[in-house]
């Protein structure tokens, strides 16, 4: 048995556990007769369990990437359908936290990407935005400069100034001790995945900025 088999089998078990935790929490929160004094606690648990799951996927993906085992399967997808699913996967936790999660995307926009990989990048970005948003998270997809741009925005305080800018700076694994490592790992992961999307002359990238459509942070994924 090689390590990736061991990893795969452990992940299978961990995912079963996470499924149980998440769905039981979902039922608990949805049950008006539940006796949790502070429902916010249950919601935070749900939020953290989802983050644990995103991190797990990130780790496995980065492991595969490091071992040249990552299969990137780029196809054409309709963005509205795709974002509908991303929202469906994250809606419950956002609602529980009192956040409005919506998307802004025309019905005819399509783009080329690996849906599983981009899905995990977006799940992670939404997980991040959940921590900083006041009341809203907005997903959007547009075609700009002949690229597909997917944005995850929130109405929080925005990214700190040193994170603003191009993705090149985050192509190195995170080492900055002042910044929460998981946020940085997330950006590192996103930049890696974006870069796997390339055409003959262009490569995907991420960019962080503030106050695009909403006043807070704006995570941008640029895919050629």
């Amino acid at each position: 048995m090689d390590f990736s088999d061991i990893l795969a089998s452990s992940i299978h078990d961990i995912k079963n556990s996470l499924s149980l935790i998440l769905n039981n929490l979902d039922e608990l929160i949805g049950d008006p007769k539940n006796r949790i004094r502070d429902p916010r606690q249950a919601r935070l648990l749900q939020h953290e369990a989802q983050r644990a799951n995103s991190n797990l996927i990130q780790l496995l993906t980065l492991y595969k990437l490091g071992n040249a085992q990552l299969v990137v399967r780029i196809s054409e997808y309709n963005l509205e359908d795709f974002l509908d699913e991303v929202i469906a996967a994250n809606q419950a936790v956002c609602q529980a936290l009192g956040l409005e999660l919506t998307h802004n995307c025309g019905p005819d926009l399509s783009g080329y990407f690996d849906s599983e990989l981009i899905r995990s990048v977006l799940d992670n970005a939404i997980g991040n935005a959940r921590r900083y948003a006041k009341s809203r998270i907005l997903l959007s997809a547009d075609r700009e400069d002949d690229c597909l741009v997917i944005r995850v925005e929130d109405d929080g305080a925005g990214f700190p100034a040193r994170l603003i800018g191009e993705s090149q700076s985050i192509m190195q694994p995170p080492i900055d001790p002042d910044n929460p490592a998981r946020t940085q790992l997330g950006h590192y992961f996103a930049a890696q995945i974006a870069a796997l999307h390339e055409t003959r002359d262009r490569q995907g990238r991420i960019q962080l900025k503030n106050a695009h459509r909403l006043p807070g942070g704006c995570f941008e994924l640029w895919l050629p």
Partner: peptide, 16 residues
């Protein structure tokens, strides 16, 4: 469908 999935995702997926 990747585990874990929410009921909203299952609903969206099945509908599609």
């Amino acid at each position: 469908l990747a585990k874990p999935f929410t009921k909203e995702l299952l609903q969206t997926r099945l509908t599609k």
